[in-house]
């Protein structure tokens, strides 16, 4: 064969080798078909651990109880017992270290998530006591009259 065939061929082989070398360096060694086979499981295995190590923010009401058992006890006798502490008090993160104090959401917007009266037959929403937020003491904070830990109207 002539030189004009060989020369481009060398270039192509060189490029292929360069790509393969780059691939060997760049692709992590734990990359491959894992438990779910090629179609669904082709990935870098260590990424699973990275997702497991993702930092959580919510700690759960049992974590709150460790220090604030009096407050947890207070709310436990009311209808609001079912609401996790962090829904209103904010995610705990590393409280009490960081943040030292949690910011409580006292806005009307939080209460009317459940207590806006909607017509929702075939939904649990219909059974929750509700108001029309555009008419019911507009501009006031709900907690000025209602105690969120003991919201019963008889106790007002």
């Amino acid at each position: 064969m002539k030189n004009h065939v060989w020369r481009p061929l060398f270039v192509v082989i060189g490029v292929v080798i360069a790509i393969l070398l780059f691939r060997a360096v760049y692709v992590p060694s734990d990359f491959g078909a894992q438990d779910r086979g090629y179609t669904f499981g082709y990935h870098r295995l260590s990424n699973e651990q990275e997702w497991k190590d993702y930092p959580g923010k919510y700690k759960g009401s049992d974590y709150c109880r460790e220090c604030h058992d009096d407050k947890v006890e207070e709310v436990s006798s009311s209808q609001h017992e079912m609401i996790p502490c962090e829904n209103c008090h904010g995610a705990a993160f590393d409280h009490p270290d960081d943040p030292e104090k949690l910011v409580i959401d006292r806005s009307r917007g939080l209460c009317i998530r459940c207590h806006t009266k909607l017509t929702m037959p075939s939904s649990g929403r219909n059974d929750i006591p509700g108001i029309d937020p555009t008419k019911h003491n507009v501009g006031e904070m709900c907690s000025e009259c209602h105690n969120p830990h003991s919201p019963s109207l008889e106790d007002m």
């Binding site: 894992q34 669904f40 499981g41 990935h43 990424n47 699973e48």
Partner: peptide, 17 residues
Amino acid sequence: GATYQTADGTVLVDRTW
């Protein structure tokens, strides 16, 4: 191969990939 399914069925995305 950036998104995949783990053996326990969760579908995840490899953000670096």
